[in-house]
Each structure stands twice: as C-alpha cells, then as structure tokens.
Amino acid sequence: MTAHAWMLLAVYGIVLTMLSVPLGRFIAGVMEGRFGFARRVEAPLYRLCGVGADAEMGWLQYTLAIMVFNGIGFLAVYALQRLQLWLPLNPQGLANVSPDSSLNTAISFMTNTNWQGYGGETTMSYLTQMLGLGVQNFLSAATGIVVVIALIRGFARHSAAGVGNAWVDLTRVTLWVLLPLAFVVALLLVQQGVVQTFEPYKEVQTLETVKYQEPKIGPDGQPLKDAKGDPVMKDTSTDRQTLAMGPAASQIAIKQLGTNGGGFFNVNSAHPYENATPWSNFVEVLSIVLIPAALCFTFGHMVGDRRQGWAVFAAMGLMFLVLTVGAMSFEQQGNPQLAPLGVDQAERAAQAGGNMEGKEARYGIADSALWASATTLASNGSVNSMHDSYTPLGGMIPLLSIQLGEVIFGGVGSGLYGMLVFAIIAVFIAGLMIGRTPEYLGKKIEAYEMKMSSLAILIVPLLVLGGTAIAVMVDAGRATIANPGAHGFSEVLYAFSSAGNNNGSAFAGLGANTPFYNTMLGIAMWLGRFAVLIPVMAMAGSLAAKKRLAVTSGTMPTHGPLFVLLLIGTVLLVGLLNYVPALALGPVVEHLVLWK
C-alpha cells in the first residue's frame, strides 16, 4: 500500500459518507411522499395511467407488478436488438443482433446485471444503446430500490396488509432520485471529456504506421485455415484508425449510479471516451457506491431509528475497507516472475509500480484496485482495468467480493435487501445462542422468515457452483476457455459468480458470446434476480402483517458494535464457506504456482 492509496481511500470514504447521509434522508422523504411539489407533478401521471396513488398493494400484487414491468422491459430490449438494422439512429449500419446474444443482453439489462457478451461499439446502434439499454439502466435500478423500500416498510409498519404501491414507488424513485442524479453526473463527465454525440464514427490518421497480422479471408468470406486447422495469417499495416463515438456520457452516468455497469464501449471505463481523466474516474467510482450507501440511511430514517442505518453502513464499510486494502496490497506486490527479467516494479515518482498488466497508466494500482473492489462489491460490473490480468490473489478479491452475495453496499436496493436478509439470519443465530425468540426491529423472526431467508441465500450459490460445474464438464463450456488450468477455471467461476449475483463484470479470457454461455448465463442472471427477489417480497409482506414488539431488557440491540460484528461474521461465514473449495481450485492454486 502506498501513501497515495491510503489518501485515496480516506478521501473516498469521507466524500462518500458526506454525500450518502443527506441523499439517504432525501430518498426516504421521496419514498414517503413528503414533498408537496413532487406529489403535484406526479398526480397527472397517475391519472393518465389510471393508477390509484393511495391504493396499497399486498406483497404478491406488488411482486407481480414488478415482474410484469420487467417482463415488458425484457421484450422491448430484445426487439430493439433484433430489429436495429431497420430502425433509426444507426449511422454505422450495424446488423441485427443474434437471437442468443439478444436474449442474454435483454435478461442482463432487465436484471440489473449488465453482463455484456458483445462489444458495444461494434454491435449496438445508438438507438439500442439509448432506448433499450439506457432505459433499462434506469428501470432495473428503480426495481431494486422499490423492493428494498417494500422490505423496509415491512419492518416499519405493523399489522398492515400492504407494502406500498409498486407503480407509485417506481415513478418516484425514477423521477426524483435517478434522473436528477444521472443528469448531474452526466454533465460532470461531459465537462471532463467523456463524449456525448450522435455523430458517426471518425476515421483519423494515426501518428505512426502500425504493422500487424490478420487472418486471410477466402472467397466464401470465412478465414482460411491451414492443414492443422489454424488460421492463415498475412502481414498488413495501416495508418488509419476508426474512433467510435456516441451518446456515452448520459449512459455512463446511470450505468454507475444504478450499479448497472454495462459499458458503452467494449472496454468499459478503461476507454478514454468513457472515462477521460482521474477526476472522471473519481466521479464514476464514487457514483458506483453512492446510492447503495445512501439507502442504509434511508433504512434508518424509514424505520424511525437512524442508528440502525449507521450499523448496517458500518458493517458494509468495514468489509469494503478490508477487501479494498487487500486488492491494493496484492496488486502493489507485483508479479514475482517479472522480477528476474529485470522489470522494475517498485513505486516511484514516475511510475505506479506493482502489477500494471491490464491497468491504465492514467490510473495506476490504487485507482484501479479501488474501482475493482467497488464495482464487484457494489454489483456494478463496470471496469477501468482488466481483472483477468490481476495477480491470483488480487483477482480473487473481486471474485470473492461478488461471491459474498453483493451485500457489501451491493446493487442499488438489492444490496441492502440482501444485507437485511443476512441481518435476519444474524439475529436468528444470536437467538439460538441466548435461547430467546429472535426479533429484529421489533418484529418476531419466525419459521416463515427463516425459510424465505434460507431460500434467498441458497439459490445464488446453487446457480454459481452448479453452472460452473456444468460448464467445465461439457465440451461447449470448455471450448472457449482461453487459459487452460487453474486460471481458466477461475474465468468460468467468475462468469457464473458475476451472472448469478447480477454483477456483470467479466474476468475476460473466456469467450462467452456463444449459444451455450449466452443461454446458461442468461438463466443464472434471471434466477439470480427473481428467485431472490420473490422470497424477499414474501418476507416484506409477512413482516408488515406482524405486530410490533415492545423493546425490553431482553431485546438484543441491533445498532451497536456487537451486532455489527455479528453481521459481518454471518456474511463472511455464510458467504465465504460456500465458495472455499471452488476458490481453492482456482485463484489459490494459481497463487501457489506463481509464488512457488
């Protein structure tokens, strides 16, 4: 760890806390309909859509509304991709997307995963990016937030039949939280040089002539192959380059704020038009965690005890700090196999030192590792460095961060509802230890809540480990692994971890744009979202219907350091133990081989 890394962490933590506290209070106000101006603007919208703003929904009705809403979004994104050649705003004339890739991408953006098996600038028209992917960036984020708001209402209300109105909640969070924040962040990014234009791609002359090899193409339009089946290559050179353009800044703002993560360009925020300067880098990495952190304080406000929000924030913050310091330290150590070759990996005034493979020279180790940590802990999935090129243990941190269940800040909404599920399990464990009926925020935790919590916790490891096992057993899964051995296994494990936990980042190195991976990962993303969301909503309904218990001397406080430690222990034990054998086969073996 360098002095720069410690300073970056300190500034990041301070700015994040200072912004998320008032934002959390604001979100609580918006969701409780406390702002008269907002209500007056919303009223005509509800009248137009025939929505009764005061009509409460039970948990099942609320869930069905969300699922129908998301289902329509899925169909819209799928159709836009399949028809983009004949639709406007396609200056490059990009072809219609294949059925399996369209299916994967539609599920990916509808579930807030934003896994990308395609390259943005070579696959998607401006219209598909804006009307399909960009709109889903807002709506999938709104979906996560309204689900956690419904769960919080479950704790805050008592003897109630409803958990809110899904249409009203979706409108409020999109209109008053996501749109204004995205507008401000987009302007900041444009000011820093992130592109926002409808102009077609630019042909420019390069400073030097570049020589390279490319496959020879036969008369049938396919690459020629030699007797061994390898492609026949030819030498070529060019002094021209195509610069991809597009309305990127507006997409990137919501991509970060909504913990979506889907890049406008293929290399995501490692592209200078998507992340132009260290300042834009800071704005983007801050935006990743801002709303998930703010929701902790929204929780505290809505349940009427701000200390509860601070306790959850503290648990998340401590785990975030430890994992980020780990990622920074492992990457700063460098690669031991490069040292004998005379490569200088020490930090100096003119270089960041450490393992710089796959990292932007503009950002160095600290800004790359902080991003890697934030994007995987917060279920974002955008990258400014290539996680595949991290040292084995440095790469294990993002992998582990995803596998902990995306509850350390996590996705917008989904992170907090995941953490509250862990909190319920934590109070249950504490109840078993002291022999009392567990309760959380005045609600008795009974068999029904534990069953739903167990389902929510167990489904994702099943998807991740089951999917990985199938992928490494069948030929279709092994065929596109670029690196054999432990690293190749890590790539497959990362892909399923990312999809099942709705993260969306990729370890790269794995050719995932195949019918097998598009379908398998699509299933993992779909179930990873809705098979968790439904039990959470069921719990929200059950908790809202319960009576509130009075606080007595026997009530375990859930706002102090003891509960914070208990919560961290539960997350680590339940989250980590599921994956230890798989991690041992991947990054741990690779580390031992590298450092032998």
Partner: peptide
C-alpha cells in the same frame, strides 16, 4: 459425459429436492 457424471448429477439433484422439501416443510420429516 460419462455414466459417472450422469449418476453424480442424479444424486445431486435428488439431494437438492430432498433438502428444499425439508427446508419448506420440516414437520413432514420429523
């Protein structure tokens, strides 16, 4: 895909169904 993979898959799926059933309705297994 060998017969061992197939057998392993059947056992794993069977165990999964049993454990989920035991989670949702433990009283039926007492």
């Amino acid at each position: 895909m060998t017969w061992m993979y197939a057998l392993g898959s059947v056992v794993a799926v069977g165990l999964l169904i049993y454990l989920v059933a035991a989670l949702l309705a433990p009283e039926k297994f007492s």
